[in-house]
Design a protein around this nucleic acid. Structure first.
Length: 433
RNA sequence: UCCCGAGUAGCUCAGGGGUAGAGCAGGCGACUGUUAAUCGCCGGGUCGGGGGUUCAAAUCCCUCCUCGGGAGCCA
């Protein structure tokens, strides 16, 4: 005889019928001859009601042995009840303990400190808020693939072990056979540019690594980044794509992950306004605005975190800050013909103070200017021979950007720290679990 | 690397010279509709490490360690 099992999110179809559900205990309550189990199976929460005289004695006795996070199989009749979370509950006729859980389960239904929770991240993942964040993240990832698939982009996977150095920030190193030192990739962009010449429009989506000793709520040492690269796009087209893209991601979460955003107590009115066009503030203008607001920033300085927050405070959607000074930005960005002190680039700053979500630019497509920039930065020219070939053999106007997945998820969820937006965060003081 | 802050029960924290505290969790008991149930009783400690001041230090001083937040770097 084959026993069939039901998933909690399907139970409304089985009202009045007896089903068996398997999952884990998340809450226990008893008041003498009536007892309640709230269980979780990954698809939802289910309240199970046990009445002593309505079930076999040995099954009733098992309740006394039940503990938080034990795995169980519960059989009973599905019925609607307003007192039950989710509107449906199970009138239990049989209870089986599949896997016991000792009494020292670390995460109790109460307040805990973040450090303690991160030490127990493998168990913390089971908590409702964490489940909601993970589902929003999944929705964003799926939406990213859908958005680009629908626009004819090809998804290209770029290497994690690399010899070339993309930018100047910290790199993780490892020995690589007889080839010397290899680095963990901190961007797939240079490879993306090569692929753009093969497919026209591509995007990469993978982990990137930064060996910076960052200690802020916006930084991880390992994070996921999506990097589109488009042939024949200039910076204006690049920014239009970005605002459509970000708006689409938000829209998808608002329509399909409303329950999760509610669980997270996210003020969705702050997201409903996220629609194109986004404001565009040239860097030079941004400096003037900031100085009027009391910042000590001078032309040529990069924007500090406080400056970014000041600048974005007046808007109800993300803001582009464009055309930064050349010296504050990476070597591959194209010089601005209208003002050669600056480059054709834009950072997209999330509103509500979540900071830089996207960094993008038009790429330098002039071979000789690119060589000059690499030399000027003091970077090893021979490491970039293949990258320079892209300008040697049929150079082309192109642009692209990088979007930080965890920052985007944190912003959409309204979660203050991005470490909760990845299953197992990697930070300066944390490589386990 | 710099600037703040914190380390006390399994967890979250209070106590700031004179017998080590609370809530939750745990144990026992009561309760037929609970929502982080409630009520009664019980057990639970190297006060981060080391040194110093003092009759007396969790408390004051010095030092080290660990962690968190912010800055910088950037997504």
């Amino acid at each position: 005889m084959t026993q069939t099992f039901s998933r909690i999110d399907q139970l409304s179809q089985f009202t009045g019928r007896s089903v068996t559900v398997r999952g884990w205990v998340s809450h226990l309550r008893s008041s003498g001859k009536v007892a309640f189990i709230v269980m979780r199976d990954g698809s939802g929460l289910l309240q199970c009601v046990l009445v002593k005289k309505q079930m076999p004695e040995e099954d009733w006795a098992r309740f006394a042995a039940l503990t938080l996070e034990a795995s169980i199989a519960v059989t009973g009749e599905v019925r609607g009840d307003d007192r039950a979370p989710g509107g449906y509950e199970l009138g239990v006729s049989a209870l089986e303990i599949v896997g016991a859980s000792p009494l020292d389960y670390p995460i109790q239904p109460k307040e805990h400190g973040v450090d303690f929770l991160l030490d127990n991240r493998h168990l913390w993942l089971r908590s409702p808020k964490q489940v909601a964040i993970a589902r929003v993240r999944h929705e964003v990832e799926q939406a990213i693939h859908d958005f680009f698939y629908d626009r004819g982009f090809v998804h290209v996977d770029t290497p994690i072990l690399t010899a070339a150095i993309g930018e100047r920030s910290g790199l993780f190193q490892t020995e690589y056979f007889d080839e010397g030192t290899a680095y963990l990739a901190q961007t797939g962009q240079l490879y993306g540019e090569a692929a753009a010449a093969a497919f026209g429009r591509i995007y990469t989506f993978g982990p990137t690594f930064r060996a910076e000793k960052s200690k802020t709520r916006r930084h991880l040492t390992e994070f996921w980044m999506i990097e589109p690269e488009m042939a024949w796009y200039d910076e204006a087209m690049n920014e239009e794509l970005q605002e459509q893209f970000v708006s689409y991601l938000v829209e998808r979460c608002l329509t399909r992950r409303a329950a999760e955003l509610k669980e997270l107590a996210r003020d969705v009115s702050k997201l409903a306004t996220v629609k194109p066009p986004f404001p565009r503030i040239p860097y030079t203008e941004a400096v003037e605005i900031l100085r009027k607001k009391g910042s000590a920033i001078k032309w040529g300085d990069d924007l500090g975190a406080e400056d970014e927050a000041l600048l974005v405070a007046d808007y109800d959607r993300p803001v582009f800050v464009c055309n930064y000074p050349k010296d504050t930005k990476a070597f591959y960005m194209k010089e601005n013909p209208a003002d050669p002190r600056t480059v054709l680039c834009a950072d997209l700053l999330a509103h509500e103070g979540y900071g830089e979500m996207i960094g993008g630019s038009q790429r330098e497509d002039d071979h000789d200017k690119l060589v000059a920039r690499i030399k000027h930065e003091g970077l090893p020219l021979d490491a970039y021979d293949w990258y320079l070939d892209l300008r040697k053999y049929g150079t082309f106007v192109h642009a692209g950007f990088g979007l930080g997945l965890e920052r985007t998820v944190a912003w959409i969820c309204g979660v203050p720290h991005i470490r909760e937006c990845i299953a197992f965060p990697r930070m300066m003081h944390r490589v386990r679990p």
